[in-house]
Amino acid sequence: MKYSAKVMDHFSNPRNVGTIENADGVGEVGNPACGDIMRFYISVRDGRIEDVKFQTFGCGAAIAVSSMISEMARGKTLEEASRISNRDVADALDGLPANKLHCSNLGADALQAAIRDYYARNGDSAKRRAQMPPVPEKRRQESCKCPYCDIEVPRGAPFCKKCGAKI
């Protein structure tokens, strides 16, 4: 299992690690039993993400993903930032190993959770919320890679249809 040079760069020198005091939005995804937690803090000014910081517990991929999306989101409008997908982040990192693509690639979900938190705090209209992509949890449930044979299996499937391994 090899990481790209870009992943290793963002892993060993992660950008924007930390917290923001009095952040305008905070979002967290993942849980420790799965091995990855990402928490994002954003400060917003005139509809743009002025500053973004994160804290991550997880593997090399999880840390690199957090760092990369924090760079991608900075300076973008909330609409632009919420359109960044997990796939965009993986592409910007020159790809991730197949078995990490779905499990550690939660950066976009965490950022969107922070943006949703911002909207919720500011009592924004339903119209704004309608422009948000669908709830990431649902999107993530579509499919996952079998960690043993690297084929796509439906999210929530009890075992891999190819090799029979329990998932």
């Binding site: 299992m1 420790p32 039993a33 091995g35 593997c59 078995n99 990490k100 960690p147 043993y148 391994a165």
Partner: peptide, 20 residues
């Protein structure tokens, strides 16, 4: 490669998060 928490540690009663 399977990224799973060790069954040995779970059998020893260790919390899955800590076993990471």
């Amino acid at each position: 490669r399977s990224l799973k928490v060790s069954h040995v540690m779970l059998a020893m009663g260790i919390d899955a998060a800590l076993a990471q």
